[in-house]
Amino acid sequence: MKEAPGLLDYARRWPLRLVMIAVGLFLYLPLMVLIVMSFNDSKRTTHWKGFTLDWYSAVFRDTELVQALLNSLTIAAFSTVLSVVLGTLAAIALWRFRFGGRTVLEGAFTLPIVVPEICMGVALLIFFAKVMPWPVGLPWPLNLGAIVIAHVAFSFPFVAVVVRARLASFDRSQEEAARDLGASQWRALLDVVIPHLRPALFAGALLAFTLSLDDFVITFFTAGPDTVTFPVKVYSMVRFSVTPKVNAISTLLLLFTVILTFIALRLQARTESERKA
């Protein structure tokens, strides 16, 4: 039997339910259509012409597309590692030390988060064209260096924010206890502070990885003809020709994102239950 909704049980009142359903459809209908069409045996129309996996096999036969995906994953891996290291160092510096201009520096580290992507994109285009040209003709994966540098520049501030928030809950007396017991400051940092940070490091890494894999605008300005990433490749496919291959590869990437999100949620749930225990 269903009870009547409580006084503040807004989620169960029909006007809000209607809005929720409408917004849910708005957010998910385009993605569902995309997934369904990736199995549609028709090159052009949006009418259903029967089930096929042809577009998926076409994706794997497209060596340029596979190479672009491989580039993107490689860039994301390097960018994630560097971003986590730099972001954590920035957060620790701002948390551990008292110095003049700390507020200014804190603001400066959040700048890459708020600056419009297009501005950062053209800035890095000019930088790699005129100030510090990245050598051409380097063997893979070194030719991806400029893109990795760009991705780290906009990702590590996000990691710093996440780690900083976690540091706020750190009990400094634990570190003092370690120091009293004879640990050097580096030992105390590695053995006491870093373990406390672990969930934030995972969250930051996941964030950095997704940001890198997602980025189109900044990469569009830093990528060369032989360093095409997945979003840049898909962009040119979408822009210049309509092919259901894009539906298939998008569906695969969606699946990847869903899996990654659920791993993140599991990790979060586990650290929360550890904290309660």
């Binding site: 209908l29 385009p30 993605l31 259509v33 995309l34 069409m37 949006t46 997704t210 894999l213 997602d214 189109f216 979003p231 898909v234 962009y235 979408v238 894009v246 998008s250 990437l253 969606l254 994102t257 990654l260 999100t261």
Partner: peptide
């Protein structure tokens, strides 16, 4: 969390 380009592209089909 899903790719911005894919989300924008998905709207075209609609």
């Amino acid at each position: 969390w899903t790719n911005l380009l894919i989300r924008t592209y998905a709207l075209i089909a609609l």
